[in-house]
Design a binder for these strands. Structure first.
Length: 120
RNA sequence: GGACUCCGUUAUAUGAUCGCGGUGCGCGAGAGCGCAAUGAGGAAAGUCCGAGCAUCACAGAGCAGGAUAGCUGAUAACGUCAGCCGAGGGCGACCUUAGGGCAAGUGCAACAGAAAAAAUACCGCAGCGAAAGCUGUAAGGGUGGAAUGGCGAGGUAAGAGCUCACCGGAGUGCGGGAGACCGCACUGCCGUGUAAACCCUAUCCGAUGCAACACCGAUUGGUGCGGAGAGCAACGCGUCUGCUCGGCGCGCUUCGUUGAAAGGUGGCUUGACCCUGCCGGCGACGGCAGGGCUAGAUAGAUGAUCAUACACGACAGAACUCGGCUUAUCGACGGAGUCCGAAU
RNA sequence: UGGGGCGUCGCCAAGCGGUAAGGCAGUGGACUCUGACUCCACCAUUCCGAGGGUUCAAAUCCUUCCGCCCCAA
């Protein structure tokens, strides 16, 4: 992992299955109507984002919809996270069956209300 | 005006701001940045068929297994499509159709019924007989999904293709057609259904799939496993514990083994392609000319917010690529035609 | 992405052309002072996951969908 800070890509993506299972096991769990979020602090670099859209969310269109909403909301809220604390975190968002019906703004509000206080 | 039939097109649009993917150009040592144009479907879906492509196997032929089943054509190919034939439905436009062979063989036909394919006769009918019964019958009744072709007349003791007409079916001949098949004539009086039962006949089929496969990369490298050592000083993780302290293990070094499995790149989008016009064909489709380039991701790109308009937006998201089929779907529009009613 | 399998009563299931066994559970009764055990009876409404077809007749054969599970990576 290169530590070069770049302006464009503010966050990285969690790819490996090991990271996901690690977060499910050890991460702090935040549950709300739109999603379930697992958080775990990490050492440095960027915040990392992983999104899980299981089969129960719906068909491919609904899964895509859920993924895009969460990604967009995270893109907007990521600078807010960084302002609050210098620590960096791994996030895994799990979409629920209701997620595709939400608006992006609602997801953003849920994130700022439920996830933001947990970062410290 | 009403009720329908068939075919085709389309699948919110426009603008602003912030983002994403690859591509091109420019800048930069590099990471990357800037600009530009561009970026899901009619089904992208189900994976039900058929091909391309790749690897492996392969002298030839056959068996097994599977698929298809009217004819002629279209096509790279098909279980697809077109036209036609037969059958069925509709007043009609038109629609539906797995539609070879039970007269090669085998099986099955529950219950009911006398009898279910081999023959026979329950109630009957007629003759003989005092009666019991014997003989002749299969018209009628009854059972069943199906009962020895149907119906009428003659005939007869009563009956029967016993005889005849018409119809259905079979055989032969002639004519028409590319063929399925159709028409006519004659002969003759005929063993039911089931092959989406086994089977027979004809035709076709090697296997596996892009996670295929190819290349890069070789000891200061790298995947997994195991052994040994150092250190728990710091940091992170695991574990022992309800929590803290603390202990142990992992990370670090090294040896052995594993030997491309891991990683990266290609395959990956110029193709049986799309659009327009002309020609051939009833049509599926084919030919010629001109023009076009129109996603290519790899944890997986199309989004968010705002504004305006209206019909207030259905089903739904590419993952190697095509040709079909099947299924889901709010609607809108166009063309051709049929029937009924009214008026002229 | 490719391949394979299964849907039958509330649960577990047999049946694979002739009208749906059995067990558990449930309901009613008998036995008992009462309960358990045991015994008897009832329990699939022509809806065997759904639609269409073949057949005289389909849970069974053919076909198209729906749902679930497993395997290769």
């Amino acid at each position: 992992m290169t530590a070069v800070p770049d302006q464009r890509k503010r966050y990285a993506v969690i790819k490996s299955n090991r990271d996901f299972t690690y977060l499910f096991k050890k991460g702090e769990c935040v549950v709300c109507g739109g999603f379930v979020c697992y958080i775990k602090p990490r050492r440095a670099g960027k915040n990392r984002l992983g999104i899980v859209t299981g089969k129960k969310v719906g068909n491919a269109v609904k899964r895509n919809r859920a993924r895009r909403i969460i990604r967009e909301a995270f893109r907007l809220i990521d600078p807010v996270f960084k302002e609050k604390t210098n620590r960096r975190f791994d996030f895994v968002f799990v979409a629920r069956a209701k997620t595709p019906t939400f608006k992006m703004q609602q997801i953003y509000n849920l994130m700022s209300r439920n996830v933001l206080p947990k970062l410290q």
